[in-house]
Design a protein around this nucleic acid. Structure first.
Length: 547
RNA sequence: CGCGGGGUGGUGGAGUAGGACCACGCGGGUCUCAUAAGCCCGAGACGCCGGUGCAAAUCCGGCCCCCGCAACCA
């Protein structure tokens, strides 16, 4: 049976513009991986969408005095534009607002309920008598009962760092109305992870190929022991609880004012988006979700780690439907800007759309790819951005291509009679494919890119060593033939990283755009296309940038 | 002492006991097919303190710093 790849990229909240941290954290890595997978000939399904629920959205709405829906409407088009701009190869990019998603989330819940993984539990929550509703922790502030700091949020004191439980705030106020709030009992569903602990643990221990720190972090959570985790909260924005389908004795008190917790519904989006894709394309979601030859890759930032290595696998296992579990969670650390955390309020931010439009998509993709926070936090530096683009993209790659193509066109009249393969070059290209494939299978993007640039360097050395400009025509043809071999293969090797470059280069040398044909492995040395190379109008592929 | 991950030239990485390596950047030289590009040479580093070893970036102990779990946030 044919190997398939499923790719789930984290779902961005629609409560603000996306900055380059989002690009580095999951959008660019997942796109590199998806293009690589497609080049290898695997049928690939890549899904994501906007996460429209949760307190980040309602907070933003309350701050602006509008409805959550207005916030969603404001930011959704911008995110869609960004994805199109950077050519992120999603097969579907949907939203958690869809009817399909709400229905499937409810079905997930009902199956967990039926299978005995859901329990009801009462907890104490802050309640505003004035507004007649429960308030999430982030809406309540007061004095910390440990250190006495004023104006602290109900979940944690910033001053002393202590995590606060309900009731540990003195004189709690609603930060919407600034009126007092009280503690009141409230009824919620919990997903009882203690019942899933053994199965999750067995699953995790079978996956020692994860990044070391991802595996260790997950194991440390398991060692502490999993506890029931609330899946509903008192909020009027989100997926409703399907009361009609719940036996009366199991219903929640006041459930019409409760919604599923955003962590619970957001990850189900990976599945619901797949179903939506299947329906729209007349396909069967089981090909990707109930298929032992389908490997599931997920891309996210480290704050999402545990949701993808424990909570989401638990939700899947609890379905008891034999659904595919995550095979490789590609977790990235964080990207900083000149040593500081991104912060909208302090103006430490680079808007993904602005930088792409100003300096070029592949330019940004290239720099970000070379500094991805794969195993530890990394830093975006403007100076380095300029240096890397000018030094590597332009001087190394762009110039190599230009010196070969111009020579081929002007000195050899777009024709080669001597097509003798130089084994040294052939081996270097084959070796690069081999090593890059190994690396990309493990989502090691930085070192893959580095290896490809080593090949380009070899190309420049090859020209320097053989000096075609000093040779007789027959000899210089051989040198240029082998240099063109490098160039054609760069259009494949670099395709996952720099799709526009790959497309533009191929167009310029009279080759058709790469077609990701299912079942055909194109991630290997290609000799045939050199015959077809003709250069009419030469245009430099990269230009130096100046900040 | 809450738990987990991390700290190697200016920058980013490789290296789990025996010559500290690679890329970019920097300094110098050189070719001229090419986008003042290319190629060659050079300088420059193991967070701090202590321990074990013939020998420590690597093993052990203590400390400091950064990040996540857990703020506007991937």
């Amino acid at each position: 049976m044919e190997k398939k790849i499923f790719i789930g990229a984290a779902w961005p909240y629609v409560n603000g513009d996306l900055h380059i941290g989002h690009l580095a954290g999951y959008l660019i890595p997942c796109d590199i991986f998806s293009r690589f997978s497609r080049l290898c000939g695997y049928e690939t399904l890549m899904v994501s969408g906007t996460d429209c629920h949760g307190t980040p959205i309602t907070l933003e709405a309350d701050k602006k005095g509008v409805k959550p829906q207005d916030i969603v409407n404001e930011y959704t088009p911008k995110i869609h534009y960004l994805i199109k701009l950077y050519d992120i190869s999603f097969d579907i990019f949907t939203a958690t607002l869809t009817e399909n998603h709400h229905k499937i989330t409810q079905e997930f819940f009902l199956r967990l309920l039926k299978n005995g993984y859901i329990i009801k539990q009462k907890t104490l929550q802050y309640y505003s008598p004035l507004e007649n509703k429960f308030l999430p922790d982030r809406y309540v502030e007061g004095k910390c009962s440990f250190c006495g700091a004023e104006g602290q949020r109900a979940d944690q004191c910033e001053k002393c760092g202590r995590v606060l439980e309900p009731g540990q705030l003195i004189n709690p106020l609603s930060n919407l109305t600034k009126k007092p709030v009280i503690l009141k009992e409230t009824d919620h569903y919990f997903l009882d992870y203690s019942k899933l602990q053994d199965k999750i643990e067995r699953y995790v221990r079978e996956n020692k190929h994860w990044k070391y720190w991802v595996y260790e972090e997950t194991i440390s959570w398991l060692k502490e022991g999993l506890k029931p985790r609330p899946i509903t909260r008192d909020l009027d924005w989100g997926v409703k609880i399907p009361d009609q389908e719940i036996p009366e004795t199991l219903r929640l008190e006041g459930s019409e004012n409760k919604r599923f917790y955003v962590w619970f519904d957001a990850v189900i989006g990976y599945f619901s988006a797949s179903v939506e894709w299947a329906n729209k394309n007349n396909r069967d979601w089981r090909e990707f979700w109930q298929n032992e030859n389908c490997y599931h890759y997920y891309f996210m930032g480290k704050d999402n780690l545990i949701f993808h290595t424990i909570f989401w696998p638990g939700q899947i296992i609890g379905q008891e439907m034999n659904l595919n579990l995550p095979y490789f969670p590609c977790v990235n650390q964080f990207l900083f800007l000149e040593g500081q955390k991104f912060s909208k309020s302090r103006g430490i931010i680079i808007d993904s759309i602005e930088i792409g439009e100003k300096y070029g998509i592949d330019e940004v993709r290239f720099y970000i790819s070379s500094i991805l926070p794969e195993n530890k936090d990394s830093d975006f530096k403007w100076k380095e951005f300029e240096q890397k683009i000018n030094g590597e993209l332009v001087d190394n790659l762009g110039n190599f291509i230009q010196r070969v193509l111009i020579f081929y066109r002007d000195k050899l009249d777009n024709r080669l009679l001597n097509k003798e393969i130089d084994n040294e070059i052939k081996n270097k290209i084959e070796n690069t494919y081999f090593k890059v494939r190994k690396k990309l299978e493990r989502c090691e993007m930085i070192s893959s890119l580095k290896m490809i640039f080593e090949l380009i360097k070899e190309g420049n050395k090859y020209l320097e060593k053989n000096e075609p400009w000093k040779k007789e025509k027959k000899d210089s043809e051989k040198i240029i033939f082998n240099s063109l071999l490098v160039i054609v293969n760069l259009s494949y090797l670099l395709n996952p990283f720099l799709p526009h470059f790959s497309k533009n280069l191929r167009k310029m040398i009279n080759l058709e755009e790469i077609n990701y044909q299912i079942g055909k492995d194109q991630f290997k040395i290609n000799f045939e296309e050199i015959e077809k190379i003709k250069i009419a109008d030469y245009q430099p592929l990269f230009r130096k940038i100046k900040l």
